[in-house]
Computed example of a mutant assay.
Amino acid sequence: MSDSALTDNLQVQSFDHITLVVKDLEASRKFYVDFLGMDHVPRPAFTFDGHWFQIGNQQIHLILEHDQSGRAGNANPEQNTRTHHFAFQVDDAKQAYAKAVEQGIPIVSPPKSRPDGATQTFLNDPDGHIIELCSLS
């Protein structure tokens, strides 16, 4: 099958959401809403507990760990910047780092410059998911 035939059949239009399994919905809500400033939005009436948060046109979906979900948290014990993570752009990664330290949020890596000139810092959410916060300066 040619490459053009593949793109004729399917074309991703946008990024929609990330789903994370968590142990404590309230601790996660505080992190994603109170620390990161996301909007807590209504969620359909699933048969399991969770929260949805809006970020521009995308969302984070949290599922409370239960007997039919995956395990909560980061399954990879490596806490470094070159393993599974996702990133959010913020106004000032250095300021976000300082706020995280002030609030006792676990830090994976302090601010550093990327080769493209952006600044990035890495931290953990309450379940150990690694999150990069990056800014253009």
Rank of each mutant, 00 (worst) to 15 (best):
M1H: 12
A5L: 13
L6W: 12
T7W: 06
N9Y: 05
N9S: 11
N9W: 07
L10Q: 05
Q11M: 12
V12F: 11
V12L: 12
F15W: 09
F15S: 04
I18P: 01
T19R: 06
T19E: 14
T19D: 05
L20K: 04
V21A: 03
V21Y: 08
V22Q: 06
V22T: 10
D24C: 02
L25A: 07
E26N: 12
R29H: 13
F31R: 10
V33F: 04
D34T: 08
F35W: 09
G37Q: 08
G37Y: 06
M38S: 10
M38V: 08
H40D: 15
V41R: 10
V41W: 13
P42Q: 13
R43Q: 11
R43M: 14
R43V: 01
R43G: 07
P44M: 03
P44N: 12
P44I: 03
P44Q: 12
F46Y: 15
F46M: 09
F46N: 11
F48G: 00
W52D: 14
W52I: 00
Q54D: 09
I55G: 07
N57Q: 15
N57H: 14
Q58G: 13
Q58V: 12
Q59K: 15
Q59G: 04
I60C: 07
L64Y: 02
L64I: 02
E65D: 07
D67T: 03
D67L: 10
Q68I: 10
Q68E: 15
S69M: 00
G70D: 10
R71G: 03
A72E: 03
A72V: 01
N74F: 07
N74H: 10
N74E: 11
N74A: 06
A75Q: 11
A75E: 12
N76S: 08
N76P: 03
E78H: 09
R82Q: 14
H84T: 14
H85W: 09
F86E: 10
Q89A: 13
Q89K: 10
Q89I: 08
V90E: 13
V90L: 14
V90K: 05
V90R: 04
V90D: 09
V90C: 14
D91V: 07
K94N: 14
K94P: 02
Q95D: 11
A96T: 00
A96Q: 01
V101E: 14
E102Q: 12
E102A: 13
I105C: 04
I105D: 05
P106I: 04
P110L: 07
P110Y: 00
K112F: 13
S113W: 01
S113E: 15
P115F: 04
P115I: 01
P115Y: 07
P115E: 13
P115N: 04
D116P: 05
D116C: 05
T119C: 11
T119H: 06
T121V: 13
F122Y: 09
L123I: 07
N124W: 03
N124V: 00
D125H: 03
D125W: 04
D125Q: 02
P126W: 00
P126E: 00
G128S: 00
H129M: 01
I130S: 02
I131W: 01
I131V: 15
L133P: 02
L133Y: 05
C134S: 11
L136C: 00
L136S: 03
S137N: 11
